[in-house]
Design a protein around this nucleic acid. Structure first.
Length: 376
RNA sequence: GGGGGUGCGCCGGAGUUGGAGAGCCGGGGCAGACUGUAACUCUGUUGACUUUGUCUGAAUAGGUUCGAAUCCUAUCACCCCCA
């Protein structure tokens, strides 16, 4: 895997880059749709490519390990073959499930013991085990196994958690050195910066991750309930320390405004369930603001779903029709908003890249951000 | 035409067998939430008003009773059976 920095914005820390993998090239900044169970919910691979212009999608180690399980994934020849996505893939390590399934897991130095959310069975995730699973899934980018501490989190806990995450990182790296990719393409391990909302911990963590000379570095443990300002502050602290020649991946972020602000702080890669989950719950993001399609006000609004949108769904369907589909519980009432939101996110980062390249990013961003969170 | 039965809040259901009803469940409606997906999920709300509370309210109108959604009478609506 190779990252090339194409341009840096003179008025901010925003960067345009190119990330080459064995499954194709990713132009950054990029948003990566989340496909936890090996599918971006509600959309086919064809639609992801053609209509949303997705360049890379995510899968999740914990979910895929539980179902369909390692035997099937191995028999299939890895996730690319299994789900028919021939572009780059990234798998999260299950570190986030350490956070979101906190009531059904127990953490120790060895790893995290989980109770399956599907059948209650018990499983031990160690850094070594997680690397082995990600070898079998076969994503192009794989994540270190980390602890994502909750917010708020006292300093002592954050510090202890961070040092364990660091030791887990060493074990991940060691395991990868001892094993080979299974399907003939390379896999890059991204370590994850933690440290909660403590500046000095964040700096130490970023330096530690950078010292391993990885192909890319992730920023984790943010967007877990802290105020936006705190998230931006921590992101800025970390990107200020990270090497400029490696891609930075801010995990789990965020709203359209979050993306633009964090691009300005030097982040190259994002993933978030917001565009897909909120789409299924009737919410779409546009350049004018946020639309809740369930609201009564759209009942007779026969204007296009998003007049400025670039996806075919934006012109082909009206707000009134979408409101009808949502209220009727129709499948398309979830699919169409999902296509719209993903296309919107990807168009947003595409224009951000163009603006960085032609030097107009900061003005453009500052003008757009206030509009993005307006409730329509 | 005769006989029987049932009627409450946007809808459906439960329940109330003379003693505390703005009250249970589901749906629908209205709104809110959602950030490395236990999420086609979750939360609030859904008679009126001058809202720490007050008022109206069990098809409609009367009656009996200390007290009526409950008993009686009439009317209306719907359902079933007979002709």
């Amino acid at each position: 895997m190779q990252f090339t920095l194409n341009h840096t914005d003179p008025h901010s820390s925003a960067r345009a880059g190119t990330l080459e993998t064995d499954h194709g090239t990713i132009q950054t900044p990029i948003f990566m749709p989340v496909g936890t169970a090996g599918t971006v919910k509600g959309v086919t691979q064809q639609t992801l490519k053609d209509d949303t212009q997705a360049q890379i999608i995510l899968g999740n180690t914990y979910h895929l390990y539980l179902r369909p399980g390692l035997d099937i994934l191995k028999q299939a020849g890895g996730l690319h073959k299994f789900n028919g996505w021939d572009r780059p893939l990234l798998t999260d390590s299950g570190g986030y499930q350490v956070y979101s399934l906190s009531h059904r897991r127990k953490i120790s130095e060895e790893g995290a013991k989980f109770r399956s959310h599907i059948d209650g069975s018990q499983h031990l995730f160690t850094p070594e085990k997680v690397m082995d699973i990600q070898r079998i899934i076969g994503a192009d980018i794989i994540m270190a196994f980390d602890e994502c501490p909750p917010f708020p989190c006292d300093f002592d806990y954050a510090a202890r958690s961070l040092s364990m995450t660091n030791r887990w990182l060493d074990r991940c790296i060691k395991r990868l050195e001892e094993t080979e990719p299974l399907y003939g393409h390379r896999q890059a391990l991204f370590p994850i910066v933690q440290g909660s909302t403590y500046k000095d911990l964040r700096i130490k963590s970023a330096e530690y991750c950078a010292s391993k000379d990885p192909l890319g570095i992730a920023i984790g443990g943010l967007s877990v309930g802290e105020p936006n300002e705190e998230m931006y502050a921590m992101t800025e602290v970390v990107t200020g320390v990270l090497p400029t020649d490696k891609p930075r991946y801010l995990m789990g972020v965020g709203t359209p405004a979050n993306l633009l602000e964090c691009i300005a702080l030097g982040v190259d890669m994002f993933d978030c369930v917001l565009p897909t989950r909120n789409a299924r719950n009737g919410q779409i993001f546009t350049r004018e603001g946020i639309i809740n399609l369930r609201n009564a006000k759209w009942i007779d609004d026969f204007s296009p779903l998003d007049p400025t949108g670039t996806s075919f769904v934006d012109q082909a369907y009206t707000k009134a029709y979408l409101r009808h589909l949502v209220h009727s519980g129709e499948m398309l009432g979830k699919i169409i908003p999902t296509i719209h939101n993903l296309a919107f996110y990807l168009e947003l980062v595409r224009e951000a890249r163009e603006r960085i390249l032609d030097g107009t990013f900061t003005d453009w961003k500052n003008q757009l951000v206030p509009k993005l969170s307006v409730r329509l």
